[in-house]
Design a protein around this nucleic acid. Sequence first.
DNA 1: TTGTTAATTCCACTATATGACAATTTGGAA
DNA 2: TTCCAAATTGTCATATAGTGGAATTAACAA
Lengths: 295, 295
Amino acid sequence: MGNYGATFRTFRKNKGYTLKQVASGIVSISFLSKFERGDSDISFSVMVQLLDRMMVTYEEFYFLHNAGKSNAIEEFFTQAQKAYVLRDGPTINRLKKQALEDYQRTNHIPFHCNALLLEVYRSMIELDLPQLDHEASQQLTNYLFDIEVWGYYELSLYNSTLFLLEPESVIVFTELIVNKSESIKKLPLLHNVLIRILLNTITYLTGGQDPHFAYEEECKTFMKYLKNSDIPEEDMYGRIGYMQAQAYIDVRLGNIDKGEFALKKSISMYEELGAHKLAQHSLNYMKIILSNHRN
Amino acid sequence: MGNYGATFRTFRKNKGYTLKQVASGIVSISFLSKFERGDSDISFSVMVQLLDRMMVTYEEFYFLHNAGKSNAIEEFFTQAQKAYVLRDGPTINRLKKQALEDYQRTNHIPFHCNALLLEVYRSMIELDLPQLDHEASQQLTNYLFDIEVWGYYELSLYNSTLFLLEPESVIVFTELIVNKSESIKKLPLLHNVLIRILLNTITYLTGGQDPHFAYEEECKTFMKYLKNSDIPEEDMYGRIGYMQAQAYIDVRLGNIDKGEFALKKSISMYEELGAHKLAQHSLNYMKIILSNHRN
DNA sequence: TTGTTAATTCCACTATATGACAATTTGGAA
DNA sequence: TTCCAAATTGTCATATAGTGGAATTAACAA
């Protein structure tokens, strides 16, 4: 039953409402009291109205109820990525075990995907190279192929794993997503992930060591799409990413100086704004890509 | 009853799940079918579990169900602000009428606040000056004084109106919020608004024409707080805002050149990243503040 | 303190959310 | 097509969401 009532009462009291004020026109006062005391569950539609009435966002409500956790999806990706960045093998293994348990219990494919994602992370940590567990990545690819509608979960899953898939697959998926993007762009939450996906795709496709740049066409198409797809003015992080993506392409096309100039500019922006980790990360990557392709 | 079932079914079908896969362990298959067909409402706690199971965010669900609208709170502020920016009087009046109706029907104070916000916007549009309807702003101040817990709605309301309140009130409110910020900072949604509030506060307090800068202490305190409060590295927009806030303070303290330099740098960043509206807006404001305080 | 009013809880009752299982429809494979 | 298994819907019994109003408690002024 979840005992959401207690959390609800906390909000109501905090905001200084009486039962009557919140309930009137939606439910009876007596029932709302009963719900708050944990003596009854409540309908979804009623709850939606009540939260609206109190001017409380679902997100806030969920957050307080779950003692500082965001929704399960977000929580999963955040935890996994954090553990990966910190090279925290034990946590990865714990999360993976959990995902597999969930999968066996429910036979629910997304849990399997979560486990795959973690398996891929694990193998990358152990080898300390972005080299992937081939079987896991193949299974992931299969799952992604079956997706018809790309929601927040699917987009995030793809965005977290695209560096581990075959470049050819990445091109297919990103194109596929771009074709469905009219609906994605309507919801800022999704639009944002879409932009990251495009930027990551370009970064990935320009990242090879082969002196021949095989994905020029695709990268240019994606850049053009990004240009027309309205990165919000306020999304300066996305805009810097765009600048860098263009620079990676320039480097691959032999315009080393132009690319280097833009990359240095982006890094100096990070520095000037005190985003030192981002600056460091970009600098490291710039060194690699330049040393791969200079002369 | 809301007929959430149909939306739910859309998601389930889109994601390729069967009733059994989604329902098992949470509700009976037959009931879920009934719910989807609109023959029954569903408990809140059950719905939360089902959405989780399908890896669907509440936000996505709400958005699809309401044909492309975000939650009511966000929707309100977005609409109001957009109408204000566009100087769209008729829309403001329509929204205000709606808010007053809601207020009379429910006697629910936030509706009154929404109406006040709109009244203030209206009077500002008519005079084409940030001069406020005094009574409305007084009522708003009273409401804000009574707030004990600052949630997303309260913070957004304050952030949208602080330029219209007495500077002394703004100092009090912002200090008050800062004191409660440990909990606010835990939820990114709220943390983000908190950062905007601090930046707007400093912008406002440094914005006077009086050659004597009366709020030096307060501004420095807020800047210090901002510095320690971890603007996320990825929030480049916030970081540029921080740079500009520091510049406004410098200008008011007589370090005109230093301030101007920083402002020009921030504007050139906007330009280089193609954020022309933000650049234009910052440029206009820089000209005003410099002409007010140079010599 | 006492009295008074508003806010909440209790209780008896009704409406409806939910489950078990049978009946029907759907979607392929042969 | 026909058949079969899986997916969905219908039926009915029951648990529980939800109501109205009386009883209780909280808030607070005199």
